[in-house]
């Protein structure tokens, strides 16, 4: 797999690589802010393309790294190799109706699972570091940080019951 990148005047940056099987993938970060991805199958004449916004491109990136578990829930694992290979996972979950109205304190999230709620996204508004008295609503997207075991525990104990 040979990756090459180059800057094209007026267009932006191009990244192109050929897979071992001979297919080509090219990504263009254009100066207009959109990202275009082209794929060209081996032996084919014309490529096919998809244009993405930066958010969509990041989403695609998450899918490709294998971090996504469900289509609308994402997780990122960060490894700090300098700190004895410390691994932290951040995962988003949607709060089900059964948990609406309950606070972080009621649910005893930290005590039961070890994971922490670091942010909640409610209708395009973000609440960073919600206090223990914070009450969830149905449809909130909660950002949970912890080890991958703690995240699993959160999913099984808090969300499903």
């Amino acid at each position: 797999m040979a990756l090459r990148s180059l800057k094209l005047p007026g267009v932006g940056t191009k990244y192109e690589f050929m897979t071992d099987k001979g297919d080509t993938v090219a990504i263009f970060f254009t100066t207009t802010g959109t990202i275009q991805m082209y794929t060209l199958q081996k032996g084919c004449q014309s490529s096919s393309a998809a244009e993405m916004t930066p958010v969509e491109a990041r989403r695609l990136g998450n899918i490709l790294t294998g971090a996504i578990i469900e289509a609308d829930q994402e997780s990122v694992e960060i490894a700090f190799s300098a700190l004895a290979d410390l691994r932290v996972t951040i995962h988003t979950f949607y709060i089900p109706r059964a948990r609406a109205g309950q606070t972080i304190e009621d649910l005893q999230i930290r005590a039961k699972t070890g994971a922490t709620v670091i942010a909640v996204c409610r209708q395009d508004k973000n609440i960073i570091n919600p206090p223990p008295s914070f009450a969830f609503e149905e449809g909130d997207a909660a950002l949970i940080i912890g080890e991958s075991d703690q995240i699993k525990k959160f999913e099984s104990e808090i969300l499903v019951e």
Binding site: L8, P9, G10, V11, T30, T34, Y38, S47
Partner: peptide, 19 residues
Amino acid sequence: LIENRKLMMKEAELIIWLE
């Protein structure tokens, strides 16, 4: 070139540099 999604054409790079 960008809007018609032709950036990957082999001629595209030459066209851009011709500008």
